[in-house]
């Protein structure tokens, strides 16, 4: 944990730690504490005054009503079908991104591990999507599949698929999954390739001498030895799908088939769909963009305006 040889200056270590600790407290710890504190507050519409909800617990720690009052925001959130829908969508999306991304990356890594000629070139061509911003990836896919100008939408139309992710929620979902996978595939590829290359060649040679073909060698030797890498990547990919894909989704669909300004008859649907489909944890506090451009909300401090679920009542 620590060096045998240390310096014993008294003040210096604190000075060295100060910048990191200061930023951590100001922008990480303090806001995190605020999140918890504010979830137990009741504020009026304009945020003029707020009231701590759990005071009842002091006088009546066993009363059911006091507990209910204390956790009323959580209660409300958990009984909101929109919230559960967004959880379902998030879980489905994350699993799909992780599984599809991992499978494709593993296939490419195994193939790249096999080839001797051109391996470096393939690697270079496969690693760079990592550098493309998720939001830019969203824009690129939105362009390719744009029902008016997109090439892929045009080709799909030619083979009889009516593609319009701006209207069809399922298509929107798959489009977001593809874009997120595309963005993440190089990351998975690099780790799988590193994992494959660290498998001792002697093991594979021994199996080959015993007569195991390439398929058998893969499933009985390489795949089990890759499983730690695979598990690590599964975790990282799910975290990526939860927190790293806001840009992709926001740039592609704004959280669902955005029907705005198109068809008045669809407006009832429109009001529900964009908010509820694909609303992710990050989106549970509302779309940050909307609040800035809404003149009424603008007058209210953003942190309150953006928590419609957690205030009033």
């Amino acid at each position: 944990m620590q060096k045998r040889v240390t310096f014993d200056t008294k003040l210096l270590p604190y000075l060295l730690l100060a910048p990191q600790v200061f930023i951590t407290i100001a922008f990480f710890i303090w806001p995190a504490v605020e999140v918890v504190r504010q979830s137990f507050l009741l504020e009026d519409a304009f945020g003029g005054n707020s009231q701590f909800l759990c005071t009842g617990l002091l006088t009546d720690p066993l009363g059911g009503e006091a507990w209910q009052r204390c956790f009323r925001h959580f209660d409300r959130l958990l009984s909101d079908p929109g919230y559960w829908h967004s959880i379902n969508v998030t879980v489905f999306f994350s699993l799909m991104v992780a599984l599809i991304g991992l499978a494709l990356a593993l296939l490419l890594a195994v193939m790249a591990d096999r080839t001797l000629r051109g391996a470096t070139a393939y690697k270079t061509f496969l690693v760079w999507p990592y550098a493309v911003a998720p939001a830019v990836a969203g824009v690129l896919f939105g362009f390719l599949f744009n029902p008016r100008v997109g090439v892929l939408a045009y080709w799909l139309d030619r083979i009889g698929v009516d593609w319009n992710h701006q209207l069809d929620g399922n298509q929107a979902m798959w489009l977001v999954i593809f874009a997120a996978c595309w963005n993440q595939i190089s990351y998975n590829f690099i780790f799988f390739l590193a994992g494959l290359q660290s498998i001792p060649k002697s093991l594979i040679e021994a199996a080959a001498i015993d007569g195991a073909g390439p398929g058998r060698r893969f499933w009985t030797i390489m795949f089990p030895l890759l499983s730690p890498t695979g598990f690590f990547l599964l975790v990282v990919n799910i975290i990526y799908a939860f927190f790293g894909t806001f840009g992709v989704i926001d740039a592609l669909t704004q959280g669902g088939p955005g029907l705005r300004n198109q068809h008045p008859g669809l407006q009832g649907l429109q009001r529900r769909l964009p908010r509820q489909r694909f609303r992710r944890f990050g989106g549970a506090v509302g779309h940050p963009d909307d609040h800035r451009h809404d003149p009424y909300r603008r007058a209210v401090p953003l942190h309150r305006a953006a928590c419609p679920l957690l205030r009033r009542r």
Partner: peptide
């Protein structure tokens, strides 16, 4: 204290962090 921040991605503390910055 530094290590624990790994568990606090921007998204979960975005509103209060915005408030601090503003």
């Amino acid at each position: 204290m530094i290590f624990v921040t790994l568990m606090l991605p921007v998204e979960v503390r975005i509103i209060p962090t915005f408030k601090v910055v503003s």
